[in-house]
Every structure is written in C-alpha cells, then in structure tokens.
Design a protein around this nucleic acid. Structure first.
Lengths: 194, 194
DNA sequence: GGCTAGATAGAACGTTCGTTATAGTGAGTC
DNA sequence: GACTCACTATAACGAACGTTCTATCTAGCC
C-alpha cells in the first residue's frame, strides 16, 4: 500500500504541526499543542525531533512544500493550455479555502513571514519550497513552448500572485480575489503567446 | 508643525508595535518588547491601551494602514500613466525592502495571517486596510479612464500581487520578484486599454 | 528468561508571557 | 498649600512557553 492506514507517530506530528502552523503561524503554535493534536506525547516529539521546535517547524514546512507541489502538479497537468490550467488552479485553491471556513490558506506563508531573517533553518526550508513551486510552473510553461526567460519570469509572478491572492481572499473571506487573479494570470500568460 | 519633533508616548508605542509586528508578527511580538522598544513603561502601555495586546495590535495595524496608503498615493500620483506608476511603486517597495536587509516587507501580512479567524478585532482592522489600499488603486485606474468593473478587478489583483511579490522577494532576498511583478502588472493593465 | 534499543509517558525546570495592582510623579486648578 | 488627574514606574500574579529529565513500556533477538 502507498501509505499506512494509520500513520506513524512521526508522521502524525509533522501533519499536525503543518496544519497548526498554517493556521496560527510558527510563533502562535506550541509544541505541546502539536503533541496533543497529533495524539502523541511530548516525549515522542522530542524523541523524533531532538532539534526541538525549530526541527518540527522545518519538517512541517517541507511537508507542506511537497503537499502543495503535488496539488500544483496535478492541477496543471489536467489542462493542456497553461493559461487555463493556472486559472483552474486558482479556482481550486479558492474552493479549498472556502471549504475550510477561510482558515487554510497558503500552508507556509505565515511561518515564512514570522521567521524570515530570524530562524535560518526554517528560512532555508521556505526558500526551497518557493523554488520548488516556481520550478513546477516554469516547467509547465516551457513545456508549452514559452522561451526560458519568459517562463521563469511568469512563473515567479504566478506564484507570487497566487500567494497574495490567497491572503487577500482569506482577509475578505471571498473566493473572488483568487478567481479574478487566476483569470488575470491567464490573460497575462496569453499576452506572451502572440 | 505637522508632527511633534519628539512624538508622545502613545505615538511611540504604536510605531514600535507596528515595526515589531511587521518583522516578527503578532504572536512573535511581546507587550514588554514593545514597551522597551518604544522607551515606555508597561504601565504606560496599559494606560493608553486598556484593551491590552489586542488593542495595541489594532492600533499598530491602523498605523501601518495609513502609512502604506500614503506611500501608495504618493507613488501613484508621480506618474500620469497608471501602468507605469504601479511598476514604479513596485520598484520603490523593492528598494525599501533591500535597504532594510529584507526584513521590512508588508507591514500587516504577518499579523493578518496569524490572527485571521481567531482575533476578530485585528481581523477587522486588516480588512479595512486592504479595502483602503484597493480603493486607492481603483480610484487611480478609474481616474485614468478605466471602467468601474475593470478598475476594481485590476486593483484587487494589483494589491494581491504586490503583497505576494513582497513576500517572495523577502524569501529570495532579491528585488527581482517585485520589479518583475510590477512590469507584469503594467502589462496586464495595458492589455485592458486596447 | 534476560538483554537491548526504540518509543512512550509525564513530571518538573526555569523563563517569559499578558495582565493586574499599587505607588509615585508632576503640572494645573482652586 | 491642598487637591486632582493624567501619566509613569515597578512588583507581582497565574498561566503557558520550550526544554530536560527519568521512568516505563514494547518488540525483537540471544
């Protein structure tokens, strides 16, 4: 089987940490809260993560990195036209956000903002995630025939805009900022075709 | 004179709180740290803000709201062409970010993400700020002849993209994401002219 | 059975958190 | 000079923080 039906303790800790930090940020999430949410004890957390809270934070960011990368890849491969694919991706994000009662936005941006310039280990994991996501979008655009330079620039802006639109949608508690941003990104991409 | 040469205690508290929350978020910033940074005592903080940390947070967000609104207005009024103006604005933000050693990004996004859905008073102040900024951009676009609907949609995406690009630039410690996003926004806006 | 190592359990440490309470200051009014 | 009141200054509170510690459990192997 692909994954164990009931995930191991380490996995439960990482998932709980990732979810809590997505919603409350790094500083707002306590180690004890993570342990409780993961149905693990404090001893287990420090057994698997001798590096303490920072180590848990890094693992949580890496987990979120992979999870969002999977969502991005799946979303982009469903459509042949990259412009339409990104607009569809934005709609998917908007739906997920609404279904979570506007609490599950970008899984790492809160942690990123709190720790930038202050917690190098987490900062590094965040940078990796952003590069990972940008690469996925850039590869899609290159695959659709866009030249290297345009693909990289567009990919950077697409990730930035999705990031910002997710925050805006969360603040307004509305799907509109995300869906509109998706359509604008499609329009921008198409403007490079001609 | 416009402002007192040495601002009063309340003003110093608000400024210190705003700066610290911009860099460390709401949860990562302590009341005692704010007092120390503002060169005020704890007693003064609770004298001016009987509502405690939440009240300080609200005032800090409102202060940042006004400050960024001023920067936005000044930046947009320097150029007649709104597309060029927004690209210039992005470059200004990039310069400020670099000059602060990549720590002074959007003044409220960290606080917004940490408190959304959990601290209604701050959530409300954040929503006000986002609407305020969007209105400034929308007014500029309407003033340049864009129809109501387009102006509103574009303004929403412009604010979202600036927000996201600032985060990305902070993560990468590079001006590029912001300057590129600015140029893309200019291109997007111009695509509505024809 | 005895041994070992991985994993779990939870008490306890010192620190810091946000908050409250109380005392003190100093300028302005009568 | 007594009084007021806005403001400042500290000490102290209980709760929560991240972390450390020791003890116990559970398999797998000899």
């Amino acid at each position: 089987m692909a994954t164990t039906p009931q995930p191991g303790t380490r996995e439960r800790i990482v998932r709980a940490a990732s979810l809590l930090m997505q919603r409350q940020g790094y500083e707002g999430t306590g180690i004890k809260q993570v342990a409780q949410e993961a149905q693990a004890t404090l001893g287990s957390v420090y057994h698997f993560f001798p590096g303490g809270k920072q180590a848990v934070g890094v693992a949580a960011v890496q987990h979120a990195d992979q999870e969002f990368a999977d969502l991005l890849s799946a979303s982009l491969s469903e459509e042949a036209d990259p412009a339409k694919a990104i607009a569809a991706c934005a709609r998917t994000l908007a739906r997920h956000l609404r279904d979570s009662a506007w609490v599950d936005g970008c899984p790492i941006s809160a942690t990123a903002l709190e720790t930038t310039g202050r917690v190098p280990a987490i900062e590094h994991a965040v940078t990796q995630a952003f590069q990972h996501w940008r690469a996925i979008v850039a590869d899609t655009l290159r695959g659709a025939g866009f030249p290297e330079g345009d693909a990289n620039d567009l990919a950077t802006t697409v990730i930035s805009t999705l990031e910002g639109a997710e925050l805006t949608a969360q603040v307004y508690k509305s799907e509109t900022p995300l869906t509109v941003a998706g359509e604008h990104m499609a329009r921008l991409i198409n403007s490079y075709k001609a």
